[in-house]
Amino acid sequence: MTEIAKITRPSADLIARVQAVGAASASATLAHMGIRNCHITGPVSYNKGKSIAGPALTLQFMPKREDLYGEGEYASVEKQLHRHVLYQVEKGDVVVVDARGDITAGVFGDMMMTYFQGRGGAGMVVDGAIRDFVNVQKLDVPLWLTGVTPNFHTQTGLMPFAVNVPIACGGVTVIPGDIIVADDDGAVCVPVALAEKMIEQATQHHDWEDFSRMKLMQGAPLQMYYPLHDDARPEYEEWRKSNPIKHG
């Protein structure tokens, strides 16, 4: 088996600030920065109310080819690459799986999920399915999935193929070590090199949103307050004097 690459993990502070931005604002801000496709489409929250951010560990599945991956789940367990991505997990990591959107094969079950939780993983984004969902729910692991299935991972037409390589997950290129931010809006991939700029721009946008939200609730014109029109900025600046920005 080819040696698995290690990822470079961003600082905990950077990850926390990405998480504070949230998936929707991160996606919108990255779009304005020229990254048009960062929302991992397909997987949705199966554990409502969870918000995570962390570096991506990646797992790639391919259509099964029997000469490369024979039958017999336990014939040689260490050849099962879906185990090896979990061996890499450190506290706060997010496992991101390209399972080709296939919901007939369960990438992980409750035993693997128990191990993932024990390693301190933050959550998983799977463009595909997991199994043993009744038991997995009890673990309360934050999950973004395309579906669930009773089948195990190679029972049907998939085989785990590579760990910590660039993958296409839900139509998005995910590089190992990218920051994944996910909440009830979905999962978004934030390129590490753009994270600081994204946070800065998203924060500037957010700073006037509280003011605009208040004005819109009062029935003020949408044209004036969302987005904040230049004519409304003096009013916003005056309001801000008695409502200082609170970051972090």
Rank of each mutant, 00 (worst) to 15 (best):
M1T: 12
T8L: 04
P10I: 04
R17Y: 00
V18K: 08
Q19T: 07
A20E: 15
V21D: 12
G22I: 09
S25V: 02
S25D: 14
A28M: 06
A31N: 15
A31C: 13
H32W: 09
G34L: 08
I35K: 15
R36C: 00
H39I: 10
I40R: 13
T41M: 12
G42F: 13
S45D: 07
Y46R: 14
G49N: 11
K50V: 00
G54A: 05
A56Y: 09
L57R: 04
T58D: 10
T58E: 13
L59N: 06
Q60I: 08
P63Y: 02
R65G: 01
E66K: 15
E66D: 13
D67R: 15
L68A: 10
Y74D: 06
Y74V: 08
S76Y: 14
E78D: 10
Q80P: 10
R83L: 07
R83N: 12
H84C: 00
V85N: 02
L86E: 11
Q88N: 01
G92F: 05
D93C: 02
A99F: 13
R100E: 07
G101V: 03
D102E: 05
I103M: 04
I103C: 03
V107F: 02
G109L: 00
D110S: 11
M113S: 12
T114S: 13
Q117K: 11
R119T: 03
G120F: 07
A122Y: 01
D127M: 01
D127T: 04
A129D: 14
A129F: 14
D132S: 03
D132W: 03
V134Y: 15
N135I: 04
V136D: 06
D140S: 07
P142C: 00
V148E: 09
F152Q: 09
F152H: 14
H153L: 11
Q155P: 13
Q155C: 09
V165K: 10
P166F: 05
I167M: 04
I167G: 01
A168F: 15
G170D: 08
G170T: 09
I175R: 02
I175N: 06
D178G: 02
I180W: 11
V181L: 05
A182P: 13
D183C: 06
D184F: 11
V190F: 05
V192W: 02
L194K: 15
I199S: 14
E200P: 11
T203C: 03
D207N: 14
D207Y: 13
W208I: 00
G219L: 03
P227M: 02
H229T: 08
A232T: 09
Y236P: 04
R240D: 00
R240K: 12
K241D: 00
N243I: 03
H247E: 06
